[in-house]
Design a protein around this nucleic acid. Structure first.
Length: 431
RNA sequence: GUGGAUAUAGCUCAGUUGGUUAGAGCGCCAGGUUGUGGCCCUGGAGGUCGUGGGUUCGAUUCCCACUAUUCACCCCA
């Protein structure tokens, strides 16, 4: 083969796209249920946006971006995450002057990170995400978590763990950083090389090292939760209380810190054990300083990103059954007169009936097999026998029942089939 | 970026202790009498055995490099 897809990128082939549609429909419907509207932003932005927004000390920005110089000499970067672009659009689009809060979601958002691939980790993946701007309340944090879980639940995913933590705010975090550094200062000599680097760059990350020796040391490290200022403490308490009142089971995990610099107060993740080591399906939190960092007026924000490929992996691992809706309401067979079949299909489609015929003019048996495999509800026959009578014959594929009809009857007969279709029900879903 | 494993048909995998035309199942196509699917039967198409070098009389098989996949680390969705 001459060309293959780039490392870490994947095609979604026609026989699999229904799985994506199913996810997308669920995400759209649940988002609408919670009052969110869709936002779409470009895949490419000024590099500067991500340096400022995501943080120039993060691994994502330091070594994983797809950055290049365009023909006009600008440094541009393919989105490494979804939030920064939405923040930029919020500011640039003047959404702060509209009604608050602003509740937005994005779907199928392509995200690029130059990483080494493994299961559940691609160089281009797609995220579903939501953002709420302009609301401080911990109720909103809970709403964001619950929306994520609602989507996952609606998709039939089970056995997930929800972890939450608070990483404080610019008022209380510096004290905690100092306490952390003071604690680790005595132990750093015994810790791994990565940790020695983290000690300088981002002490928070010392907490979630996987090396046994480091873990032992980190276990007795001071916890952010003991250093939260009153505001942050109240916020976290209210979040926990609200989640509990919603019946959401969560674990407070002081080691989750997230790899993006912009988080404040709440951070959370939803993890599955079923897809290997890259089990985080959804991650998010609050980012009250981000909009200001990106040049807007100080506005609180909270949201999450959900990895669609990972979600699909979990669904596959758990054998979640997604029904593919049949391609056709009716398959038209005219025993050789393909121009006639073409014409009939055109009339049927005009009436909103999903119809197709065989442009390859294969044998009747082959066309019946085709109709069967593509899941057609019915086959419409018009051969010499029918033509003599001025009628058509319709065979229901499920029952095998076949009857003759007058031409003016068939639209009603076929529309009745169409009305019971599953995709239609999906569209009518209201949660 | 680091370490281990793998690479044979569209898919899942056999196989060749180095030697003529490389196999199976599924899928695809066709046929099993005149115009009818699912089951069954028969036949067919489809592979430069990941790519490029090396060793050898001869490499899909042995060696090396590259690429991709995979598992883990780092990190993250």
């Amino acid at each position: 083969m001459k060309y293959s897809a780039l490392k870490g990128t994947k095609d979604v082939l026609p026989q699999d796209s229904y799985r994506w549609h199913h996810m997308e429909n669920t995400m759209k419907n649940i988002s609408a249920l919670y009052g969110f509207r869709e936002v779409r932003t470009p895949v490419i932005e000024h590099t500067e946006l991500f340096l400022r927004g995501v943080g120039d000390t993060t691994d994502i920005v330091q070594k994983e971006t797809y950055t290049f110089t365009d023909r006009g000499g600008r440094s541009v970067t393919l989105k490494p995450e979804g939030t920064a672009g939405v923040v930029r659009a919020y500011i640039e689009g003047g959404l702060a002057s509209e009604q608050q809060p602003t509740k937005m979601y994005y779907l199928n958002c392509p995200v690029f990170r130059y990483e080494n691939t493994q299961k559940g980790r691609l160089r281009e993946h797609h995220q579903f995400g939501i953002e709420v701007f302009g609301a401080n309340s911990a109720l909103v944090d809970a709403e964001v978590v619950s929306l994520a879980l609602r989507v996952l639940g609606e998709l039939g995913v089970k056995d997930l763990e929800t972890r939450i933590n608070s990483i404080g705010c610019p008022d209380c975090r510096p004290q905690y950083h100092q306490a952390l550094k003071a604690y680790f200062a005595d132990h750093i000599a015994n810790m791994c090389g990565d940790c020695r680097g983290r000690y300088q760059r981002n002490p928070l990350r010392l907490l979630d090292c996987k090396v046994t020796q480091c873990k032992r040391i980190a276990k007795d490290a001071p916890s952010m939760l003991d250093y939260l200022c009153d505001d942050c403490k109240d916020h976290f308490e209210k979040l926990k209380q609200t989640l509990t009142s919603l019946g959401i089971v969560y674990h407070v995990d002081p080691t989750i810190v997230r790899g993006l610099d912009y988080y404040t107060k709440t951070v959370f993740e939803v993890v599955s054990k079923h897809i290997g080591s890259q089990g985080t399906v959804c991650g998010g939190g609050r980012y009250d300083g981000l909009i200001e960092t990106c040049g807007g007026t100080s506005t609180p924000g909270v949201g999450f990103g959900m990895g669609m490929e990972r979600l699909l992996l979990v669904m596959e691992a758990q054998d979640v059954d997604i029904k593919e809706s049949p391609r056709y309401d009716v398959f038209v067979h005219t025993f050789g007169d393909d121009a006639r079949a073409f014409d009939i299909c055109y009339k049927l489609r005009k009436e909103g009936i999903r119809a197709d015929y065989d442009p390859l003019n294969r044998s009747t048996k082959a066309q019946m097999r085709y109709a069967e495999k593509s899941g057609a509800h019915a086959v419409l026959f018009e051969g010499n026998d029918e033509r003599k009578k001025g009628r058509v014959s319709i065979r229901m594929m499920d029952s095998g029942e076949q009857r003759d009809y007058e031409w003016n009857q068939i639209f009603d007969v076929l529309k009745k089939i169409n009305g019971t279709d599953e995709t239609e029900q999906g569209e009518k879903f209201h949660g």
